[in-house]
Structure formats: structure tokens, C-alpha cells
Design a protein around this nucleic acid. Structure first.
Length: 798
DNA sequence: AGTGTAACTTAGCAAGGAGGGA
DNA sequence: TCCCTCCTTGCTAAGTTACACT
């Protein structure tokens, strides 16, 4: 709604990220800097120019306060909000709670369902409440839900119409669900399939065999070639082997396994490969039937009831055991990810709901009734000790609300960004190193969209973000070019040569002084310090909000540049180009698809061919009328661009292709005839076909010699010119396609579309440019962003 | 004040299915 | 019509951030 008032933002210069990602298989693509197409980047976004907002007491106070302050976050939040004049929902709540008798529920472990419930009920009798009681009466048995109440759906889904006054410490009032789905038990291999060790087939207990199977099934992947992965797998395998009583040869002698390289998994691999193929080979009817069976069995897990509304559950499946596929140089990659037992799983559910039954003979670790969290179940994973959660699906109102809030927060930042930028510009000169570092980091986060960059442990992959940048990640090229080269989240390489503000350059130089490889550049800074500082400007402001803000802002700028003309297809391409700018800003890469090079090569060949065909047409024109050349010499300039060798090559390719096509066609026709019980075509037919190909080849040869294509007697100058035109269209189209393919080969558009670009921008584009939303959002995305599709119009502004 | 952890959000990859061109 | 490509979908790893704890 807030119309773009300000040019407070110079659009980001185009940058080109490198494709040198780690491919997720632990192989850091060995650096080949020559490959890095690096364009210098001008980074000057936060120009203090025309700063009409008075830098009033607020800013200076915030600044003065920050260093000394160690008051509670709550206090600061309230102050900031007050100073702000804008009473955000959060601030309102804070005020409310201060005055209300009940202190803010400090709930973490113990459940305050009842107290929190009653409190909220008194304060906000929301529409959802009313519905709740209504549905409640309809569905008596909590957990035998099969998704009936379809009637009041439209009503249900419009949570976005009354956003803003909800309590976000309490996530639900009633919650019913059917728990989680465990993976099927291990099915031992048939006796014909064994691990082979030192050329001997060995017998394993199912426990050990399962682990060997995990590896065996993936020996064709990159993981299996990673030495760390092999080591970690083998250690865990040996441990399980020992625990299960060791291995025997087939004649019953016990055998000790000690050397990974003596293991031969081919039998196991072939077995699983066979199963995969069998599954693939099923008829579509059988596949459908199996799917229907699976769906029926999973039905009850797919939804839950929250405050009486039926909501989709996301990952209700407990993660199956396997080998941990840590990314990049993760030290634990390949370790055994153990099977999760019900005894490890905590169920979170409403107090009055029926608790789902654990699998026969088992029990849940705990049944909890914590309404301050959104998860339905959780367990601790054994590799890193992380918690895994069963959460609602992206299309649920719970996720929708939090998405909505995320984007609203980014929009809120728009109001403050000018001042924040002015401040960190000024603070680039601060006396205190801490402040100078903070300002420099803010610059990087704002301009380059870096992540916050928290500290990481020894037992994780060595990746960094802004605050954790080290000496070796930043190279300075005077006067003010900085080369960033580091592995970020997911071990994706960030490589960027950037022209930065002179002060930033100077500061980085200072921060690097007297340090060496391994030392933190920002040694006085970490995300919590940075975020604490940001809270002074705006409640809830953190480093990551800048990524959202800048992504959406950039998208809006890009869209504003698109002319509202042309076909839908052209508009979609333009939209994607805008999207790509954002993806590049956020460094969203993907590894190049396996067949990419080949398929690009194919298109290039095709282009070459088309261009050659064009020169042929023009040569034909000249044969018909030499005078044409005088009329328009430029038009005929290109006719000699191809050397004889190139032409020969192109011709050979065409003939080769024709040959293959002719053969294939002939074969297929015969197969069909045979299937229909008719007589197949004989040699004579084939000879005819072959002759045609040979004829063309001969004509080509002749043409190569003479330099002139043979004319057809239907050819006229006009017709030929028309053909040239058509060819030109095809050429433009094909090169556009090629460019798109190349541009997209290393850039992932989906991540920014899904997580960073306010969907209302896309909806605005859809409406303003009359491009159906289906062309911009997939079905899942449309479900996820239903709130945006309904609430934004063609005038919507970020 | 620093550290650890819970709770989410963000991320790229693999498999599979839909859709489009020869 | 068939194949192949491309895109979606599902999966789970890897981040961030708030907050509890000491």
C-alpha cells in the first residue's frame, strides 16, 4: 500500500555468481578461478543523499544507548515502539501484558494450556474461536477424523483478513492429530544377495546387513566416492557388525572385516537396482493402485484439527534410517542415521485430544500439551543431536501467518531503512572498533545480502556468513575492490568481486591487520550483538530481515522496469529475468544438470545450422537476381561467414541426423506392422529411403564444391526473403532459449520465489500485466500463498 | 556475558510425473 | 505418439534467532 516514495535505494548492480558450488556430495568443486565470470560490482546503495527524514532524537538516542545498554530486551522493545509512535501488535501486546496481572507466560517445558487459553479467550474472542466451538460439537471423537467438515471452508481460510491482534506466544487452543508414520521395518536380503569381502560371500545379521545395504544401494553416487563418507560409514558398519555378533562366511566360519576396500557391494547394488527397475516397470494401472493404497493408509496423518479447523500436516513421516548425507566437507557425512523408535518421539497434542496410539508394543517418549509451539511431534536425531519436528504444511494457516508476518516485517523495515543506512554510514568512522565492525557488517548484509553468520563447531562443515568471515575469505584490491570467496550455507561458494565504499574498504583493511588465516575479521561481533543493535531501530528487526527486504525490493524495482506489452510468454520471461536478479543477489545456486553441456551443445549446433541455412537462402536470392546485392549490401554481408570446413561439418551432422531418423522411422513402422500382424516392409522400401538420404548428401557435396545451393524452380526472391525472415525469427527464439538455459543453469529461481519475494508482488504483477497467476506460481505455491493471491491487487506496493 | 538449545525458516538435490516437441 | 526434458514434489540438511541457563 505504501507507495514507493523514495529512491532511498540504488538498485543493486548486476552481479554474477559463480557456478562453483559444492555439489552436495562432499566434493568441493575444485576452484578454477579462471571460470569465474566476475563482473565488478558497484555497491553503493546507501547513499546518504537527500535524507529528508530528520535524524531526530530517536536515532541518536538509539545510538547512544546501544553500547552501554544491557537492559532487558523487553524493555528495549517497548521503548523503541513507543518512540516510534507506531504501535505494532507486538508492542501493544507488551504494553497489555505489563499492565495485566498475569505475567507473560514463560512457558517452555511445562504447559500452560489452561491459563494461556483462558487469558486469550477473555481478551480476543476471535472468529476462529466461534468456529472452534461450532466444529467441536460436530466432531465428537477427537482422533477419528477423516476430513469431513468441508462446509465452512471459505470462511476458515481467511485468516489474513483479521491479522494483527493475535497473541503469538500461544499458537493454538485445541489440537488434535493422529501422530506420525514410521518407516516400514527392514526387509532382509534374499540369500542370493550377499556382501562380498575379500572375494568371499559373507553372511550378516539383519542389523548389519541393513547398514551394508544403505551403502550398497548408493555406490553409484558421488557420496560413495567421498573418503570421509566411506570412513564414517565403515566405522559405524563395523560397530553394528560387532554388536550383532560379527560375520560368517557361507560355510559358517567367522570372518573379520577390517578393510573397507575389500568390500564388494555389487550384489547388493544390483539387487536394489533390480527392485527400483521393477517398480518402474509396473503398469500405470498398478502404479495407481499402489498409490491409492498408500494414500488411504496415510490419509489420517495428512491433516490435523487446530482450533477446530482442519489443517494439512507437512512431514508426518518419521525419517527413515540411512547414511547421513552431510553436505560439503561435513565431518560426519556417511555416519549411520539410526532408526527412530517411538520411545524417542515426543507427541505434542491438545489436552483434551485422544492421544494417538504408539505402534504395538511401544510407547511414546512423552506426551506434551504445549500450545506455545506449532509442532505435533519431535525427536532427537543421533548424528548431530538436532531436533526434528513434525510441522504443518506450507499451505496451512499457521505457516501462512508466519510468512505474512515475515513479509510485513520486511515492509516495516522499509520505513526505517533510510535511517539505518545513514547511521551505519556514519558509524563506518566510529572510534570504537566494535561499532565500526558493526557498521561494516551491516553494510555487507545490506548491500551484498550476506547471511548473519553464526559461529560453527568443529563437527560441522566449515561454512561462514558475515560475522564469521575470516581473514582468508576476503581479499582487498586497491583502491576499493573486495573479493569475497567463501563457502556459505550448504557449502555453496560465494565468489564476488565488489567495488565497495571507500570507508568499507579501509575498515576491512584495518580489521585484517595483524591477523592471519583462521582469524575472524569481525572479532568484536556476532549475530546476537548485531541483532540486538537492530532491535533498537525496530522491534523484531534482525539481520535476515534485510535479505527479505532487499530481495523483495529488488523484485519490485525490476518489475517496474518491465514494459507492459507483448505476449504473455514474453512477460513471463521478463518476470523470470527479474526473479533471476533476486536469485543472484541471494546467491541461490544449483549444480549444473548432468546433461546440461550436451543439451546446450545441441542447441548451439542447431543455431549454427539455422544460420547456415540462412546464408544458403541468401545465396539463392543472389542466384536469382544479382542486383539485390547492390540494393542492400549489408543484407548479404553474412553469406560468407562459414568456412568450407564448417559447412562440411554442418552438412555431415544433418546427413547423420537424417540417416538416423530414416532408420528409426523404418524400424518403427515395421514394428507396428508386425504388431498388427501385417507384412513388414522389405529391403526395397528401405533402399528407396536410403537413396533419398544419399541424394541429399550428394547435393550437399556438390553445393560445397560450387559454393552455391541448387535452386528449386518454385523459388522466387520474395519467397526466399520470407523464408529468411522466418529463419531469423527462429534464430532469435532459439538463442533466447539458449541464453535462458545458460543463465538459469546455475541459478535456482525457486528459492527466492518461495522464501524471499513477497508473493503479493507477484500477484500485483499477475494482475497488472494480465498474466495468469498459474504461469508464475505452481499449484503448491498458489496454495502456500493463497493469502497473497486474495489480498493483493494490481496497485499493491511493497 | 557467554553458551547451549529449541523452534523455525531456508536450502539444494533426487525422483518422479507432466507436458511439449519431433 | 513417444520420448525426453523440465519442473514439481518430497526430503532432510543447514541455517538463524530467541531465550533459557549458569
Amino acid at each position: 500500500m505504501s507507495s514507493s516514495e523514495g529512491e532511498d535505494n540504488v538498485p543493486l548492480a548486476k552481479r554474477r555468481a559463480t557456478n562453483d558450488a559444492v555439489n552436495g556430495n562432499g566434493n568441493v568443486a575444485s576452484d578454477d578461478p579462471s571460470k569465474d565470470t566476475t563482473n565488478g560490482v558497484k555497491a553503493e546503495k546507501a547513499s546518504d543523499s537527500e535524507d529528508d527524514v530528520p535524524l531526530n532524537g530517536r536515532a541518536s538516542r538509539a545510538k547512544a544507548k546501544t553500547p552501554a545498554t544491557n537492559g532487558s530486551a523487553k524493555k528495549r522493545t517497548a521503548t523503541a515502539a513507543k518512540a516510534n509512535g507506531t504501535t505494532t501488535p507486538k508492542a501493544k501486546r507488551a504494553k497489555k501484558e505489563e499492565s495485566s496481572e498475569t505475567p507473560k507466560p514463560k512457558v517452555k517445558k511445562e504447559t500452560s494450556t489452561s491459563s494461556a487459553k483462558s487469558k486469550v479467550k477473555k481478551e480476543t474472542p476471535s472468529p476462529a474461536e466461534k468456529k472452534k466451538s461450532k466444529v467441536k460439537s460436530e466432531s465428537p471423537g477427537p482422533s477419528n477424523n477423516t476430513g469431513e467438515e468441508e462446509d465452512d471452508e471459505e470462511e476458515e481460510r481467511k485468516w489474513w483478513e483479521d491479522m494483527g491482534q493475535e497473541d503469538d506466544t500461544q499458537k493454538w487452543t485445541t489440537l488434535e492429530h493422529n501422530g506420525v508414520l514410521f518407516p516400514p521395518p527392514y526387509e532382509p536380503l534374499p540369500n542370493s544377495v550377499r556382501l562380498i569381502y575379500d572375494r568371499k560371500r559373507v553372511v550378516l545379521k539383519p542389523e548389519a546387513e541393513e547398514v551394508a545395504g544403505f551403502f550398497g544401494a548408493m555406490i553409484n553416487t558421488q557420496h560413495a566416492e567421498n573418503v570421509v563418507f566411506q570412513q564414517n560409514f565403515f566405522n559405524d558398519f563395523l560397530r553394528v557388525l560387532e554388536e550383532s555378533g560379527g560375520a560368517q562366511t557361507e560355510d559358517g566360519k567367522s570372518i573379520e572385516l577390517t578393510d573397507f576396500h575389500k568390500c564388494d557391494f555389487t550384489e547388493i547394488f544390483n539387487h536394489y537396482e533390480k527392485l527400483r527397475n521393477q517398480k518402474k516397470a509396473l503398469s500405470s494401472i498398478e502404479k495407481k493402485k499402489l498409490k491409492a493404497e498408500r494414500d488411504a493408509m496415510e490419509e489420517k496423518y495428512k491433516t490435523c484439527l487446530i482450533d477446530g479447523r482442519r489443517e494439512p500436516v507437512g512431514n508426518f513421516r518419521i525419517e527413515p534410517p540411512g547414511l547421513f548425507r552431510g553436505r560439503g566437507k561435513h565431518p560426519k557425512t556417511g555416519k549411520l542415521k539410526a532408526r527412530v523408535q517411538p520411545e524417542q518421539v515426543i507427541i505434542n497434542i491438545g489436552k483434551d485430544a485422544v492421544v494417538p496410539e504408539p505402534p504395538e508394543g511401544h510407547e511414546w517418549a512423552e506426551v506434551r500439551h504445549d500450545n506455545t509451539v506449532t509442532w505435533l511431534a519431535n525427536w532427537k536425531e543421533n548424528i548431530n543431536g538436532n531436533n526434528k519436528y513434525v510441522l504443518l504444511a506450507a499451505s496451512s494457516s499457521m505457516k501462512g501467518k508466519s510468512d505474512f508476518k515475515k513479509f510485513e516485517k520486511a515492509r516495516e523495515l522499509k520505513k526505517h531503512v533510510k535511517r539505518i543506512r545513514a547511521d551505519y554510514r556514519k558509524e563506518l568512522d566510529a572510534q570504537k572498533t566494535e561499532h565500526r565492525q558493526r557498521a561494516t557488517a551491516m553494510y555487507l548484509i545490506d548491500v551484498l545480502a550476506l547471511r548473519a553468520g553464526g559461529e560453527k563447531g568443529e563437527d560441522e562443515a566449515d561454512t561462514v556468513g558475515c560475522c564469521s568471515l575470516r581473514y582468508e575469505h576476503v581479499t582487498l584490491k586497491p583502491p576499493n575492490i573486495v573479493v569475497f570467496d567463501f563457502l556459505g550455507k550448504d557449502s555453496i561458494r560465494y565468489y564476488q568481486e565488489v567495488e565497495v565504499d571507500k570507508k568499507v574498504f579501509r575498515n576491512l583493511k584495518i580489521f585484517k591487520k595483524n591477523k592471519t588465516e583462521g582469524d575472524d575479521i569481525f572479532d568484536r561481533l556476532d549475530p546476537s550483538i548485531l541483532n540486538r543493535h537492530l532491535q533498537n531501530y525496530m522491534p523484531g528487526l534482525t539481520a535476515k530481515v534485510f535479505r527479505t527486504y532487499n530481495a523483495t525490493y529488488t523484485m519490485e524495482q525490476q518489475i517496474d522496469k518491465i514494459p507492459n506489452e507483448g505476449t504473455v510468454g514474453e512477460k513471463v520471461v521478463a518476470f523470470n529475468a527479474a526473479n533471476r536478479t533476486v536469485a543472484i543477489l541471494c546467491n541461490h545456486q544449483r549444480s549444473v544438470a548432468k546433461g546440461h553441456e550436451a543439451s546446450v551443445g545441441k542447441i548451439e549446433d542447431r543455431l549454427k545450422e539455422l544460420n547456415w541455412e540462412k546464408t544458403r537462402l541468401k545465396k539463392k536470392i543472389l542466384q536469382l537476381d544479382k542486383g539485390e546485392k547492390k540494393k542492400d549490401p549489408q543484407y548479404f554481408e553474412e553469406i560468407d561467414t562459414f568456412t568450407k570446413e564448417e559447412i562440411a561439418e554442418i552438412q555431415a551432422k544433418i546427413i547423420e541426423r537424417d540417416q538416423i531418423r530414416a532408420e528409426r522411422k523404418f524400424q518403427r513402422e515395421n514394428e507396428k506392422l508386425e504388431a498388427e500382424g501385417e507384412k513388414v516392409q522389405g529391403d526395397d522400401v528401405w533402399k528407396e529411403r536410403q537413396a533419398k538420404v544419399d541424394e541429399k548428401a550428394a547435393a550437399f557435396k556438390e553445393e560445397l564444391k560450387s559454393g552455391n545451393p541448387a535452386l528449386k524452380n518454385t523459388d522466387t526472391v520474395e519467397k526466399l526473403k520470407e523464408q529468411v525472415k522466418k529463419l531469423e525469427d527462429r534464430i532469435t527464439n532459439t538463442s533466447l532459449q539458449l541464453k535462458d538455459k545458460e543463465d538459469n543453469s546455475t541459478v535456482a529461481l525457486s528459492t527466492s520465489k518461495m522464501n524471499y519475494i513477497d508473493p503479493r508482488i507477484t500477484v500485483m504483477f499477475s494482475k497488472k500485466f494480465e498474466v495468469p497467476i498459474e504461469k508464475l506460481f505452481t499449484k503448491t505455491l498458489r496454495e502456500k500463498f493463497a493469502w497473497a493471491i486474495e489480498s493483493a491487487d494490481e496497485k499493491w506496493r511493497f
